[in-house]
Amino acid sequence: MELLLALIIATLTGTGIFLALRARTYPVVLGLTLLSYAANLFLFAMGRLSINQPPIYNEQITHYTDPLPQALVLTAIVISFSMSAFVIILSLKAKAQLGNDHVDGKEQIKEEPKL
């Protein structure tokens, strides 16, 4: 299970980085989303993987899963979700105002950037 999860995180991170390095805003947004999924899964896995165990500490219970990473992931998911929403709106605004969806706001660099 550990290997599987590690592979999933690695795939998500790899594709995320690849997409985040593209020149159009849509793949970049998608890449950022995948990266944040990878980070969330990674954070979750840091509480160690365990199945069918209560996420709470109790005197009688000897085996329990660490509840803190779950709380952290919840926070991180909310934050990354809102950030994704923001960046989508921002890139739509950029597309509307700049007339194209290049991350630099122009189709190709023809002239020296104006200072």
Binding site: A20, S36, F42, S80, L90, A94, D104, G105
Partner: peptide
């Protein structure tokens, strides 16, 4: 908008690294 787009994307990657 252009400057904001760069700033936001960079900082989102930063947040992922922070996590």
């Amino acid at each position: 908008v252009k400057a904001g787009l760069h700033y936001v994307i960079l900082n989102l990657v930063g947040s992922v690294l922070f996590l």
